[in-house]
Structure formats: structure tokens, C-alpha cells
Design a protein around this nucleic acid. Structure first.
Lengths: 231, 231
DNA sequence: GGTTGACCGAAAGTGCGATTCTGGTCAACA
DNA sequence: TGTTGACCAGAATCGCACTTTCGGTCAACC
């Protein structure tokens, strides 16, 4: 039985991430990763059962880090959770993480078939919880039709815009975030200042939900499967 | 010299469109088109110099028809030009034209390399003109940062949403349009009713610009290149 | 017991000649 | 004069043998 050290696991993921960005999933050989770290190929397999799990772990670590970053901002200022700040801030934070961007753009040649099945489901639940809490506490207007779809569609273009056309390459990321903030604030939030108590409450609720999400991510990253039951 | 009849040209384009949707650009042979119409392959070449021009003509006709449709709505009710109605209505009309949808989704295997270079430029100019007129007459709020980018990004997600994820397939098109209308109205339009005179003026200006656009399209469709200069 | 890298088989890639397809032409025809 | 489809050349596709790559294993080593 093995309990490979975690610091090495992180170095492996570091290398995997770098190579992934540079060459794409298919072109990265497990041996490349091992070489980059300065260890034997077999050692990688002491950490994860196969190649796909290595990259899955990488993406989970990335997601966890990103979520932590957002969590930190909420802790520093609970007012961060009002939709327009939350969403534009997530936009910024996300865009600074090339791996996450590549993932959610579904760059097919970058990722072989990294299914975020359970992951996606968890995020969906979180989003639903977020929306419900916001609605309940009056931080989102109640007259928006089809809220979930509306938020998605309204946001999607900002994430995909520069992928499909280079006509807005010149606009700085911060300005784009500001535009997104304007959009969310005017279209989804009620007029006037939000109730500070509601903000605090929702911030607390959301924080704990995010913490749970992060711990879920982290759990998946370094989990080493026990050797299969003997046949 | 030839002046092939226009009705036949239209039948060719009809067939080309049907085949294009069914099999994609590459798989459609000029001979297939001719067969479908019941004419000889050579006849197609009496209308257009090569295969690509046939499909370019098809897309121009499609664009012209679509623009005409919008134009008709504006004529029937000038208030159609207020942004939220204009944009959501364009959304609906566009989504009912599979060829246009395929085109602007950039379905690479559907279209070989149909460059809408000049076309795109013309549309951009029109959009700019539209925005300026709206701003000038107070039909769009003046506090929206980066207006052009904002409108694009805010709208894009609605066009691409169901391409990338099937999670909103269930939402009827009309409801999506309603969401888009809400978004545009609340985020881009000033509160209160628009000035009827401004509406009428902008409607007139936009109508004539659209008519010009359509006539530009139509001109390109059936234009037969003169035989090359003798070598 | 942790670590390694030679080794294996499957799968992907490569080279190349044979074959089919198809855009475009044009002599013949109506 | 308008229309056609047989014809041609170049491109794409296919078939296939050969080579290379790479995920994953495991006996040997430290």
C-alpha cells in the first residue's frame, strides 16, 4: 500500500498543467510529465490510476483554487455576493486561469474527454441554491422570466465572445467585467441599495456552500484508489 | 453572353439550400444540385462562375429575405425599432432560418470557407449607425459603458446557448426571446415610454438603411460575371 | 517498501499506389 | 442561342503494410 507524498502530487499536477496548455491533452505523454518533474513514469501511476485521472485531478485543483479565490473575496467583503459583483468578479477571476477557460470553452483538442459529470451537477445545485437565496432575500428582482436561463444566456456571451470573434480583443478585461456588472445590475437587481442584513445572511449561506464545494474538490484530487480487489 | 432566367436561379438556390442543410457544403456536388432541379450541370455554371459563388448567392438571398422580414415588421409597426423589440424579434426571425443559424454559428463543416467579408463589414456599419441613432434620440441609455461590446456580448449567449449545452433545450424559443427582450429593455433602454417622434424618425432612418442593405444583397445574388477577357 | 524504466500490446500515425469523386470545360446538339 | 452531359485533370479517399508512439505493468533495484 502506498501513501505518496502530497507535495510531489502537486508538482506532478503543476507539470501536467503546463504541458496541457502548451501541447493539448493528446500530445502530453505521461512520461513527459514524469520527466518534467524529474521522476519515473511509474511514480505518476502511484498517485493516479491512469492518465485521465491525472488531468481530472488537475482540473479539480484548478476549480478548487478558483473557488477559494472567490471565497476569499466574499470573506473580505460580504457585499461581494450581490449578483453583479459576484458575477463580474467570477468573470475576472476565471479569465485569469487559462486552464479553466480552456475547460469551459470545451476546447475539444485540449481535453480528450474529461467528463465533469458529477462536478457539473454539483455546480448546478450550487447555482440553484444561490438563485433561490437571492430571490428569497430580495437581492434579485422577482420579475425576471426564466431566471436560470436568463442568467446563463446573459453571461455566456461574455465568456465566449473573444473565442468566436477577434473584434473585441482590444477591450480590456476589466472593462468587459464592468459591462457585465452593468448588465447584471440593471437587468437582474432591484433598484436601490440592498438590505445589509440580507447581504450578510446570503454571504454566510453561500460561503458555507462554497466551502463544501471546495472540500469536495480537494477530496477528489489526491484520492488514490486502493488496489483493485484480487481477481 | 447570357442572361439566364431568374426563376431558374431561384430554383437552383432552393435546391442548394436543401442539400446544404442535409449534407454540408463539401458533400454537395454541383451535379447534385443540377439533378435536383432537373437541369444539366453546365447550366448551373451559366448562372455562377463556380460552386462557391452558388452558395454565396444562397446565403445572400437568405440574408436579404431575413432582412426583408424585419423590414416588414418595422413598416407594420415603427415601434418595433426600440432596441428590446428589435433585438428579440431579430432573434426569433433568425432562429427560424436554419441556414442563417448554421452560418452565424460558423458551422465549419457545413460551410467550406464562405467568407462574408464585405457582407460582415456592411452589417457592422449598419449596427454602428443604429446605435448612434438610438443614442442620439434617447432610445438607448447613455450610461452604458462600451455600448457596442455590451450589446454584442449580451446577445451572443442567446444565439449560442443551445449549441453548447442542451440544458435549455426545453425552453421554448418565444420564452427565450422574451428573456432577451427583458434583458435589453432593462439594461439598455431608459425608463419610461420612448418619445413617439424619435421612434418614427429612427424607424424611417433605419428602414432606408435596411432597404439599402437588402438591395445590396439582391444585387450580388444573380449577378453573372462577364466571360473573362480572352487570353 | 518506495521507485524505476525496460517492456508489451494496442492504437495511432505514415507512406504510397490504386481508385473514386467532382469542379469546371466545351464540342455538339436542339 | 441556350442547354447539355461526356470528358478531363486534379484532388480527395481508400486500402494496406509498415513504423512509431504511448498508456500501463511489473520485475528488479535501492
Amino acid at each position: 500500500m502506498s501513501h505518496p507524498n502530497r507535495e510531489r502530487a502537486d508538482r506532478i499536477l503543476d507539470a501536467a498543467g503546463e504541458l496541457l496548455l502548451r501541447m493539448g491533452y493528446r500530445k502530453v505523454a505521461v512520461d513527459d510529465i514524469a520527466r518534467a518533474v524529474g521522476i519515473g513514469k511509474g511514480t505518476v501511476y502511484l498517485h493516479w490510476r491512469n492518465k485521465e485521472l491525472v488531468f481530472q485531478a488537475l482540473m479539480m485543483r484548478e476549480s478548487a483554487d478558483l473557488t477559494d479565490e472567490i471565497l476569499g473575496r466574499i470573506k473580505a467583503d460580504p457585499a461581494m455576493i450581490v449578483p453583479h459583483r459576484m458575477i463580474s468578479s467570477s468573470f475576472l477571476v476565471t479569465h485569469r486561469r487559462p486552464l479553466v477557460m480552456a475547460m469551459l470553452r470545451g476546447n475539444a483538442d485540449m481535453f480528450g474527454s474529461l467528463g465533469d459529470l458529477a462536478l457539473r451537477k454539483q455546480q448546478d445545485e450550487l447555482r440553484t441554491q444561490f438563485e433561490e437565496a437571492m430571490l428569497r432575500r430580495g437581492l434579485i428582482r422577482s420579475d425576471v422570466p426564466n431566471l436560470t436561463y436568463a442568467l446563463n444566456a446573459a453571461t455566456l456571451g461574455f465568456y465566449l465572445g473573444d473565442t468566436l470573434s477577434d473584434e473585441f480583443e482590444g477591450v480590456p478585461l476589466e472593462e468587459k467585467a464592468a459591462v457585465l456588472a452593468h448588465l447584471i445590475r440593471t437587468a437582474f437587481e432591484p433598484a436601490g441599495e440592498p438590505d445589509p442584513e440580507a447581504v450578510a445572511d446570503v454571504a454566510a449561506e453561500l460561503s458555507s456552500a462554497l466551502e463544501e464545494l471546495v472540500s469536495g474538490y480537494r477530496q477528489g484530487i489526491y484520492a488514490h484508489d486502493p488496489t483493485r480487489a484480487p481477481g
